[in-house]
Simulated scan of single mutants.
Amino acid sequence: MYRIVYLLLSSVLFISCNQNQNQNKNKKEKVALPYYNEPTFTPIFESNKALVEKRISHKIDDFSFLNQDSVLINQKIIEGRIHIANFIFTSCGSICPTMTKNLKMVSDSLANQKNIVFLSFSVTPWIDKPYVLKRYKRDNEIENKNWHFLTGNKADIYKLARQSYFAEEDIGFSKDSTEFLHTEHFVLVDKNKRIRGIYNGTLTFEMEQLLDDIRTLSTEK
């Protein structure tokens, strides 16, 4: 009788331990976001800082563009801060309004997070002058001071989009500014200017994943 009770208790403890181990494992897996070093977006999982420095060479290049207030914004604004980038144009009647609405949901959810930056680059900068972007931001009721709508030289924006942010993935990596840039992607970049996530900006449910990943990056040292 005692032996049966002992075996039953042992089984319960064994199952409980396994469940706890699985839960802890899941927590650890949730913490680790991959790095993306190439436009194919092949994930690289690495937690060792020394190996990250060795293996992950790709970072967002330096840039300098005017925002909606005609203020010059450059790479200094993202140094040591998480940021999300997307590429839109104000006259877009297809995916851009949805993308802006979805990114606003993310921005509003992080209203108290001062170290999260949002960068929306115009892909028709010859039309989207600063005053046009200012009106666009106002019309979309965006109040986040850390959300900048950027305009400038077309070739510079397209190069940054395709070769730094991999905005169109590998399909657009080798294209130049003569081919129009149009993408639904949001790109998540960590405090060290390394790409850590890509999301479909037209899908509301992917914004939940983006928010989760931003929170995960916020805890990363």
Rank of each mutant, 00 (worst) to 15 (best):
D156K: 11
L150N: 07
V117M: 05
T151C: 13
N146T: 06
T151E: 04
W147Y: 09
N192V: 05
I127C: 01
K114Q: 15
Q163M: 14
D156T: 12
S122W: 03
Y131I: 03
L119H: 13
I116K: 10
H185Y: 12
D156W: 04
H185R: 11
S177D: 14
K159V: 03
K137R: 11
S174I: 02
K159F: 04
F186L: 15
S122T: 04
Y131A: 12
K191F: 01
I157V: 12
F180C: 05
L133F: 15
L119C: 10
T183H: 05
L188W: 07
Y158F: 15
N153I: 08
N146M: 01
Y136N: 15
Y158R: 11
S174G: 09
N192T: 12
F149S: 02
K154R: 13
N146G: 09
F121W: 14
K191I: 02
K154T: 12
N112V: 05
Y158Q: 08
S122I: 01
L119D: 03
A167K: 07
E179P: 00
Y136F: 15
K145T: 08
T183N: 02
E179A: 04
I127F: 12
E168G: 13
L188S: 03
L160P: 12
F180G: 06
K154S: 15
P125G: 02
V117Y: 00
V117I: 13
D176W: 10
N153S: 06
D156Y: 09
E169I: 06
E143A: 14
L160I: 06
K159S: 15
G172S: 06
S120F: 09
F118C: 00
F173T: 01
N140S: 15
A167N: 09
K175M: 11
Y158V: 12
T183Y: 04
S122F: 03
V189P: 11
H148V: 02
K175F: 14
L150S: 08
S174A: 10
W147E: 01
K145N: 07
S164F: 09
L133E: 04
I157T: 02
I116H: 11
L188D: 05
G172K: 02
Q163C: 06
Q113I: 07
Q113V: 09
I157P: 01
G172V: 02
K134D: 10
